[in-house]
Amino acid sequence: MKQLILIPDIINKLEEAVNDYMITTRVRAVIIINTAGQLIFKTGIKKSDNFMQSFSALSAGIFNATVSIAKLIGDDYFENILQEGKRINLYYSAVNNEIIIITAYNQNAIIGVINVMNKKLKKNILDLMTEDDIKIKKQVSFDNEYKDEVENLLDNMFK
């Protein structure tokens, strides 16, 4: 199972990919959440943490609800969901069954362009994700000199 591990290098690359997407599509904001309702990444929106938590949780709820509908009709999940408002529209797009990209856009953006460019963004995010079992471990090695020193210290303690 692939996971998005947010280390500085990955965050920079993610930021780059999202900025590229925003410039091309002219959308207002991009929010990346997981299906548990936790906020992973946001750009183009300056709201309080409380607002973002509520927004993430509710959005995840909407997506999860549609997953049930998708399963009823024999699919795993809906790849794209569109909510049209008077001023702001929301475009939900699933990277996999855990990560969702939410794009907020107004009349300046074109849904067809968002649709096409979103595929590129999803691919970029998938490329940034690493397999679950590949854990980043820092191996610590002790040389013989260090070992000897420690042993001597321990011996001295019990003398």
């Binding site: 074109i110 849904i111 067809g112 362009v113 649709n115 096409v116 460019m117």
Partner: peptide, 28 residues
């Protein structure tokens, strides 16, 4: 045939990907 938003109304295309890309570009 696409909407002004770049969404496909109908198409006769030999590959699916091209129609979406063309539609988006043309709409923009």
């Amino acid at each position: 045939v696409i909407t002004k938003d770049g969404l496909l109304i109908d198409k006769v295309f030999y590959d699916n990907e091209s129609s979406e890309v063309v539609g988006a570009m043309v709409a923009q």
